[in-house]
């Protein structure tokens, strides 16, 4: 039986509801309708009284989750699109993220963000918000790239006593399939080397893992062996695995789908530059989306975000240095 990335997210929520009586789901159109992407399909039937439609009030949705967490609940909030989480930004970064530090009260909430671009989605249904949230202390930011990670990391998120921003990529929802969900492998906070190599390292996460693997396969034809590291969680960031990979290859390209100013890729490059400067054979590179809003038309969108071909081009420049 094969399962898509989206189905894995539904199954993880099913499992969370089944095993943790303190879990409930709150989000727009998620009850009888099953959610805009059907990530909660049938869950309101299977768990009556635990899946709730929310008004279009992202601020109040997150505020309610924090209050519920104070009382021992473990809410999962679905943002209809990651983009709309900006309307709940204050509650996320100031209420949820500070609760433990200020009051010694843990805040076990999970906020699911259907993230990233798909063709034709335009400026307000395509954003990648991980860098924005990672900037704030008190949040854990997960960016699963595989079906198994989508499943296990969502369950991990629910079990964590801290607020988790779960960035699930919409581009992977239907395309990505796995034959089965195996055992839990890596814990939160550990990166995975998805493809070993020795000429250069690509550090990336979420949908860009797959673009990077395709680029690495292309370069393989020219005899280059590219190591691809999937961060899995961007915060905490597994610096050790990144540095170990750079030690092997001497070259690093960091790829992210978010906007280019600052952010996860800049953080990776900053860490590598300050902690492993002596290991580098070439200036570290980063590749992000362009510094404009995300365009609607596929012709523009394909050039706006990194793709296997732009990643391949960047890698060739890196290797030529």
């Amino acid at each position: 039986m094969s399962m898509t990335y989206l189905e894995a997210i539904r199954e993880a929520q099913y499992e969370a509801l089944r095993t943790h009586p303190s879990v409930f789901l709150y989000g727009q159109d998620i009850a009888a309708f099953g959610g805009a992407f059907k990530a909660t399909k049938n869950l309101s039937k299977e768990f009556p009284g635990r899946v709730f439609d929310a008004p279009i009030s992202e601020d109040a949705m997150v505020g309610l989750a924090v209050g519920a967490a104070i009382e021992g609940a473990r809410p999962i909030i679905e943002m209809q699109f990651a983009d709309f989480s900006t309307c709940g930004f204050n509650q996320i970064v100031n209420q949820a993220a500070t609760l433990y530090w200020r009051t010694n009260t843990s805040c076990p909430i999970t906020i699911r963000l259907p993230s990233g671009g798909t063709a034709g989605s335009g400026p307000f249904h395509s954003q990648s918000m991980e860098s924005l949230y990672a900037h704030y202390p008190g949040l854990v930011i997960l960016t699963p790239a595989t079906v198994e990670d989508a499943y296990w990391m969502l369950l991990d998120a629910v079990e964590l006593d801290d607020p988790v921003i779960f960035c699930e990529h919409k581009f992977l929802y239907y395309h990505l399939k796995a034959d089965q969900i195996g055992e839990r492998t890596l814990p939160i906070g550990k990166a995975r080397i998805v493809r070993p190599g020795r000429h250069a390292t690509v550090v990336t996460y979420s949908a860009m893992v797959h673009e990077s693997i395709r680029a690495a396969e292309e370069l393989q034809k020219d005899g280059y062996q590219i190591e691809v590291v999937d961060l899995r969680s961007v915060k905490p960031m597994d610096t050790d695995t990144i540095l170990a990979s750079v030690a092997r290859t001497g070259r690093i390209l960091c790829v992210g789908e978010a906007f280019p100013w600052g952010g996860v890729t800049a953080e990776v490059i900053a860490r590598v530059s300050s902690e492993a400067f002596h290991l580098l054979d070439a200036p570290p590179m980063r590749l992000n989306a362009k510094d404009t809003p995300i365009p609607y038309h596929p012709n523009l969108w394909k050039s706006h975000r990194p793709t296997s071909s732009s990643i391949g081009d960047a890698l060739r420049r890196l290797l030529r240095y």
């Binding site: 601020d59 505020g63 309610l64 209050g67 519920a68 009382e71 609940a73 509650q91 100031n94 209420q95």
Partner: peptide
Amino acid sequence: MPAMISHLGSLLSVVNGMLFARRLQ
């Protein structure tokens, strides 16, 4: 007794959530 953050207006939904969870439980 939740501890207010500075951002005005943001405490009411937290109180809502506390009551909501208690009802659920």
